[in-house]
Every structure is written in C-alpha cells, then in structure tokens.
C-alpha cells in the first residue's frame, strides 16, 4: 500500500504498551492528517510521553499498530533510517551533544547519517539556526546557551533531517516561564509552514491557540478529544473537566 497525502500521515490503532506488569497504554487510536497540529494533554503518568515515543520507535509496543506514511513502525523488517528521516523528535531535556557547537549539533546527522555534502549541509544548518532565531550563536557550545536557546538548537537539529512529522515531548517543561515563549514561537512558525506537529504539552493557552485537535489522555486511554474550542469550553467527560479546572 503506497501512502497518499489524503490518508492519515500518522495512524495509531489500538496501541497497547506495558512496562513489565504496568500497563501504560490501553488501546489508543488516533489519525493525524498531514499539516495538522495535535496536542496531547493529560495528568502525569497518563502515558502521553510513552505514546509519542512509540511513534518513532524509541519504545516498542505490545499490541496494535502505528503507521507513518503508510509504513508500519513496529515491524522487525522496518528500515530504521527511513523512519528517522520521516519523524523528528525534540525532548524535554534538549539532549544536545555537549561536546559539539550549536552548528555542529545541527550538521551532525545530515553529515554522518545521510552522508550529504558538507558545504550544502553547513549552508542549510546556518539557515535553520537563523530560522529558529539563533543567528550568531552558531559557534557556542550548548553549555553556553540558555535552556530556551538549547531547545531551539534541538529543534533545528531535528529539522536538519527534513522530517515530515515533528514530535515534541514536553519541550517547554524544563524552561523558565520567559523562555517558554521563544520556543513556542518557533513551533508556531513551523506549524504555519505546514509541518505536521504532535505535541505533548502542559501549555494550555498554546494548545488552544494552535492545535487543530486536542486529545486528553488519562490512565492509558483517550478520555476525550476534539477541536480546541469544543474541548476547552464544552468538555463532556468529568475527568476532563476536573483536569481543566485544575490547570486553567
């Protein structure tokens, strides 16, 4: 089956995941179309992060299926590199390589993994750093950058692989309130360009403004989902209402 853009770019169907005896995901399903921005919210321990880590095979699953552009992710014969090129991921703790400068961090994967030409890669990396508003910080090491700046380098680093889908795992959770905004602006720019974004977030205002669809998870299941307007103003499930009353 070849994938066409009118089909979901990421399709999650009845996914089950457990760590030992602990069942974390109990049958989660969602379809995400190209260019959509999806926010997954929910109390801690509800399996949000686990879910998006499953999308790029950082975690394995025990049941169900996840496809990206029609390609089954949890398949033993999967070409890992093909998946990595399609799906980029940004982590809560940035996870930049501390022994490389910002520019080198962005250039590393295209150079070493995709074996692209150095001059082209460098040109693209500089453009990406400019795009995340970090012009002039190319030669700084991650230790010399603020949390928000590091997180934007991490976003640029993922973008350097030209992914079709970006996963954001609580990317602002470790940041100061002032620097949260600069990272969110970067994500907003990306979304405006039509990048498919899947975010796990606690930034309700951001989710409301930017998301096309919001999923609320609790205890490993999707309790409720819908477009932001209906979700925030007209939540049906008591669990959703309780959660929203606490965070809003």
């Amino acid at each position: 089956m070849t994938w066409t853009p009118d089909q979901p770019i990421v399709s999650i169907h009845n996914v089950q995941k457990s760590f030992g005896a602990l069942e974390v995901l109990k049958g989660i399903s969602m379809d995400i179309m190209k260019g959509e921005v999806i926010c997954i919210i929910g109390p801690s321990g509800s399996g949000k992060s686990t879910l998006i880590r499953c999308i790029n095979a950082l975690n394995d699953i025990q049941g169900g299926s996840i496809t990206v552009e029609g390609q089954e992710v949890h398949d033993d014969n999967l070409d890992q590199l093909e998946l990595r090129k399609k799906v980029g991921m940004v982590f809560q703790q940035y996870n930049l390589f501390p022994h490389k400068t910002a520019l080198q961090n962005v250039m590393m994967a295209p150079l070493k993994v995709l074996k692209q030409n150095r001059a082209d890669v460098e040109q693209r990396a500089r453009a990406l750093l400019k795009k995340v508003r970090l012009e002039g910080k190319e030669n700084n090491y991650p230790g010399e950058l603020s949390g928000g700046q590091q997180q934007r380098v991490a976003i640029a680093r993922s973008l350097a692989m030209n992914p079709d889908v970006m996963l954001f795992d609580e990317v602002t959770a470790a940041l100061d309130p002032e620097t949260v905004k600069e990272v969110l602006v970067t994500i907003k720019d990306l979304a405006a360009e039509g990048m498919t974004c899947i975010l796990v977030t606690h930034e309700m205002g951001f989710a409301r403004e930017l998301a096309d669809h919001i999923y609320f998870t609790d205890k490993g299941v999707i309790v409720e989902h819908g477009p932001p307007a209906t979700f925030f103003d007209n939540a049906q499930d008591p669990r959703t209402r309780e959660f929203l009353s606490q965070v809003l």
Partner: peptide, 13 residues
Amino acid sequence: PSGQWESADSLGF
C-alpha cells in the same frame, strides 16, 4: 545520560 543515546537514536545514528 541516556538522553544522549535517545536523541542520537532519533536522529538516525
């Protein structure tokens, strides 16, 4: 830190 392995993994290394 394990995050270094994970981010390298997610970049296709």
